[in-house]
C-alpha cells in the first residue's frame, strides 16, 4: 500500500491534493483495497456545493455500498466522468487516473485538519488493529 507524501488524508479515507485554490479528491489505496472490486461510481455534478463531511458521491463494490465524504468544503468544478464507465480505474490507480472530483476550496483553514501521509498510515494501522 502506498501513501504519497504530497497528499493530505481524511479519516474517511479520502485523499486531497492542493494546487492553488483547487483540491483534487479521491479515495486512498487502503480504501480501494478494503472495498474490493469497485463496480459502480456515482459522481456529483459540476457546480454542486458540499460542506466538509457531506456525502458527495457513492462507490459500490460487488457486495457493498459506500458513501464518499467531502474532506473539505467547496464547489465541484470537475468530476472524473471516465469513472462512470470504468469504475475499476479506482482500484487500479486510486491516486492518479482514479481521482473523483476537483473542488474549488471554500475554506483553506480546513486543510489543516487533514492528516499527513505519516499520520494517515498510523491512523489506519490503529484502525485495522
Amino acid at each position: 500500500m502506498t501513501f504519497p507524501d504530497d497528499l493530505k488524508y481524511s479519516k474517511e479515507h479520502e485523499w486531497v491534493k492542493v494546487e492553488g485554490n483547487v483540491a483534487t479528491i479521491g479515495i486512498t489505496d487502503y480504501a480501494q483495497e478494503q472495498l474490493g472490486e469497485i463496480v459502480f461510481v456515482e459522481l456529483p455534478s459540476e457546480g454542486e456545493e458540499f460542506a466538509k463531511e457531506d456525502v458527495f458521491g457513492v462507490v459500490e463494490s460487488v457486495k457493498s455500498v459506500s458513501d464518499v465524504y467531502a474532506p473539505i468544503s467547496g464547489r465541484v468544478i470537475e468530476a472524473n466522468d471516465p469513472l462512470t464507465d470504468g469504475p475499476e480505474i479506482l482500484n487500479e490507480d486510486s491516486y492518479g487516473e482514479g481521482w473523483i472530483i476537483r473542488m474549488e476550496i471554500s475554506d483553506a483553514k480546513e486543510l489543516k485538519e487533514l492528516m499527513s501521509a505519516k499520520e494517515y498510515e498510523a491512523y489506519i494501522k490503529e484502525e485495522s488493529e
Binding site: G36, E37, V39, S61, V62, K63
Partner: peptide, 9 residues
C-alpha cells in the same frame, strides 16, 4: 472467507 482474489473473478 468472503473472497480470495475478487468476487467477480
Amino acid at each position: 472467507p468472503v473472497q480470495y482474489i475478487g468476487i467477480s473473478q
